[in-house]
């Protein structure tokens, strides 16, 4: 019940990764190898065993709601690949009319 190349492509698309056909074939094989390996967990009896998502159970760690100095806009924008004034600039999000 392994991944086909098309399944792997869908997974890659969702993770926002673009592979060539050749890379996709390799990735599919590696993914299937790993899945075969981790499938051994199916044999472990976990009936009634709670899942562990974290080593500690700290819950609701609060702090006082006091204003503090954060990053300045200049610092936050310093690594931006592209900016417009105080904004991060990105390529077009919604297709333009000329593309129909």
């Amino acid at each position: 019940m392994g991944y086909t190349v098309d399944d792997a492509k869908l997974l890659a698309d969702r993770a926002k990764l673009r592979f060539s056909r050749e890379q996709l074939e390799k990735a599919t094989q590696e993914l299937n190898d790993m899945i075969r390996y981790v499938d051994q967990l199916a044999h472990v009896d976990t009936e009634g065993v709670p899942p562990m998502s974290h080593p500690h159970s700290f819950a609701n760690v609060w702090r006082d709601d006091e204003p503090k100095e954060g990053l300045s806009a200049e610092d936050a924008l310093a690594n931006a690949p592209d900016r417009h004034g105080q904004f991060f600039r990105v390529p077009r999000i919604i297709a333009g009319e000329e593309e129909g």
């Binding site: 981790v38 967990l41 472990v44 976990t46 562990m52 998502s53």
Partner: peptide, 15 residues
């Protein structure tokens, strides 16, 4: 359920 959740439960057993 079959992978991530299962792994978290076996993680409990390891702990």
């Amino acid at each position: 359920a079959a992978y991530f959740d299962k792994a978290m439960r076996v993680r409990t057993l390891i702990r």
